Simulated scan of single mutants.
Amino acid sequence: MLRIFMYVMLACVSLLAIEPYKKVSLDNNLVSSNVVKNKLLVGSDFGEVIEIFFDDEFFKIESKRLMQLPKVKTYFGDSYPRVFFVDVFYDSMLVLSEGDYGGKNLLIIKDGAIENILKNHEALNIKKAAFVNKDSIFIALASNEIMLYSLKDDEFKYKKQISSASFSDFSLNENKDKYVLSCESGIVYYGDVKNGEIITTFEGANKDNVYRALISDNEIIITAGQDRKAGIYKGREYDFIQTDFLVYSVGISKNGKYGAYMKNESSDIAVFSFLDKKEIVVLQGHTNVLNSIFFVSDNKIISTEDGKDILFWKLDK
């Protein structure tokens, strides 16, 4: 009787787990990834900027290397730089990459021309940068200072110190007028991009470093925590999902109905409903630590790892 029960349980578990619909394998290790419309923008550890186009149903997936950045100087000789983040706004591309001797370069690429836009400013330890519009870039430093840089005026519109805790991540909402920022304290900051002011803070879900913080269109926030928790904030209420391993990455659908998080040390991805935290499906296929999880729609997901594989998932297949 016990044996029959175990077989039934294993069958139920297997029904919850699915394999990737498609896979793209890079030549070099992925460092960063970002989805803009129907394009996945990838930065590698070999100075590459790669664009992966996908249609709405994942029938057509095309990968092409847009560029390879020039080598930079290190204490061990010249090498290709790591590309920490890539963003696009219409015909302009923003690339945050490794500079000489561990510095950072913030590049604008347009019509084939590459410009280091902060070359006239003091060296900054930039951790992340993203377009707000064609003229403005939102920047965060390792010291947890945020800035709004004007391309048109070549100046910072503001500089604001968020806290003394080390910076972890930021995300902009769909309209790019609000930011959510996480750091090693476990506190999540929600603020105004235009002036940098903090509107409110969220805490309670995580007690330690928050690796990632994402926000949906209806302002539900999900966090990835070093304390092995995927945090959830809905208004002033918070909740969390306890896991058995550090949660390095999370994802959230645009409408805030579904979330996803790194479930275990095997980098399985659990997809769940925000309504009741019920686990819907487990995505199995990664062999390295998760880098990012993107909801293209409620039932289509792209996930990337700190390795060479990019996986495309269809939850209704």
Rank of each mutant, 00 (worst) to 15 (best):
L94Y: 07
E197C: 08
E62K: 11
L107H: 07
V210K: 01
E115V: 15
T201Y: 09
N209I: 15
V8F: 15
L96I: 09
N173Q: 13
D298R: 11
K152S: 13
R82Q: 06
V24C: 06
I198D: 04
D268S: 05
S273V: 06
G259R: 05
F138H: 03
N291Y: 04
I139K: 06
L26N: 03
D208Y: 12
G77S: 01
R228D: 08
I232Y: 14
L214M: 07
Y248D: 09
L181I: 08
L124F: 07
L69F: 04
F170T: 03
N299Y: 11
L96G: 04
D306I: 14
S63Q: 15
V271I: 09
Q68N: 12
G225N: 07
R82E: 12
S163C: 10
K207Y: 14
D45L: 05
V72Y: 05
I126C: 00
E184T: 11
K64W: 11
Y179H: 03
T223W: 02
I220K: 15
V210F: 00
I252W: 09
D87E: 07
R82T: 04
D217H: 11
A260P: 01
F76P: 00
D268K: 01
G47H: 03
M262N: 14
Y149I: 08
M262L: 12
I222A: 14
A123L: 15
D217Y: 04
K257R: 09
V95Q: 02
A205I: 13
D276I: 04
I221E: 09
G103H: 03
A230F: 09
I198M: 01
A260E: 06
K128Y: 12
V132D: 09
V193L: 01
V88L: 14
Q68Y: 02
D56C: 02
F294L: 08
I301S: 04
S253E: 08
K194V: 06
D100S: 01
N288L: 13
R228G: 08
V282R: 05
L2A: 07
A130S: 15
N105Q: 10
S136P: 00
S297E: 07
D78I: 06
K60M: 09
K229E: 03
N34R: 08
T74N: 02
F138C: 03
V180R: 03
G43D: 09
C12I: 15
Y233F: 14
E265D: 15
I139Q: 04
I4E: 15
S182N: 06
V42C: 08
L15V: 10
A129Y: 02
L246G: 01
V193S: 02
K257G: 11
I199H: 00
L10S: 12
N299V: 11
S266R: 10
E57D: 15
D111L: 13
F294G: 00
D244Q: 13
E122Q: 11
A165E: 13
G112C: 07
L311T: 05
S25G: 00
F138P: 02
N206I: 03
V250N: 00
Y261D: 01
N116Q: 13
I215W: 04
L214C: 09
N175C: 05
I139F: 08
I117M: 09
V180I: 10
K64N: 14
F53S: 07
S303Q: 10
A270P: 04
F84W: 01
I109H: 05
S143H: 00
L96P: 06
V86H: 01
V132A: 10
